[in-house]
Write a protein that binds this DNA or RNA. Structure first.
Length: 181
DNA sequence: CGCGTTTGACCCGCGC
DNA sequence: GCGCGGGTCAAACGCG
C-alpha cells in the first residue's frame, strides 16, 4: 500500500460514532477511510483547509482479521465468546493537526498509553465515559510525518454527544444520504 | 471530593 | 513453552 494511506478493514456498515463538525472546526481533516483502500468514497466537502472523504464499509471476509495502518499490523481483539460476526465496527482517519485529541463532542477517559513498534510516538487509548457506552478510540501520531494524527474509532455510541453542535444534524443528514441503509 | 491522567503490571494471542 | 507486541487494568497521583 502507499506510504501514508490509512487502510481500514471493518466488519459492517456503520454510522459515524462521533460528531464531525467540531473536528472540522478544530483541525484539518485529511481523509476518512473506512475500508480497503477504497478511494471510492464520497467527497462531502472541501476547501483549502478541509478536505474529507467518506468511504463505505463493506462486509469483509472472515479472513480479514487485521487492521493495517501504514506498516503497522494491529490484531483485532477476538471476543472470548467466539462471536466472530459481532466484531465491533472500526474505522480510522487521518487529520493534520497540532493537537492529538480532537474535540468530537464526546467525553473520553484515557485508560492506557503504549509505545508501538516502528513509531517514536506513543499510542493513546480512550474510552467513552458515558455509562454503558463501550466506544473506544485510539490516537496515534505518525513517526514519518508528525503532522498527521491517526484516530481509530471502535464501536457505536448508544447516546447523543454530550457537547452537541449546531450544525451536527445537518452534517449527519448529509452523510446519511450517502450511506446505504 | 469527583473525575481524569499516568504508568507499570498484567493478560493474551501469535510466531518461533 | 517462551518471548514479543499490542491492549487493558488499576492504584497512585493531579487538579479544579
Amino acid at each position: 500500500m502507499e506510504n501514508h494511506a490509512t487502510q481500514f478493514l471493518g466488519s459492517s456498515i456503520m454510522p459515524f460514532p462521533f460528531n464531525l463538525s467540531p473536528i472540522m472546526e478544530n483541525s484539518h481533516v485529511m481523509n476518512i477511510f473506512s475500508n480497503n483502500n477504497v478511494p471510492n468514497g464520497v467527497v462531502l466537502g472541501s476547501n483549502q483547509d478541509i478536505r474529507f472523504q467518506i468511504a463505505q464499509v463493506k462486509e469483509v471476509s472472515q479472513k480479514n482479521k487485521f487492521i493495517q495502518i501504514d506498516q503497522n499490523v494491529v490484531k483485532k481483539s477476538g471476543k472470548k465468546t467466539g462471536e466472530m460476526k459481532n466484531r465491533e465496527p472500526r474505522f480510522a482517519f487521518h487529520t493534520r493537526s497540532q493537537v492529538e485529541v480532537l474535540d468530537d463532542g464526546y467525553r473520553w477517559r484515557k485508560y492506557g498509553q503504549k509505545l508501538v513498534k516502528n513509531n517514536k510516538f506513543p499510542r493513546s487509548y480512550y474510552r467513552c465515559t458515558y455509562e454503558e457506552c463501550n466506544v473506544k478510540k485510539q490516537v496515534q501520531r505518525l513517526s514519518e510525518d508528525e503532522g498527521i494524527v491517526v484516530t481509530t474509532y471502535e464501536g457505536l455510541h448508544t447516546h447523543p454527544a454530550q457537547k452537541p453542535s449546531e450544525n451536527f444534524e445537518q452534517i449527519l443528514n448529509q452523510m446519511q444520504t450517502y450511506l446505504p441503509n
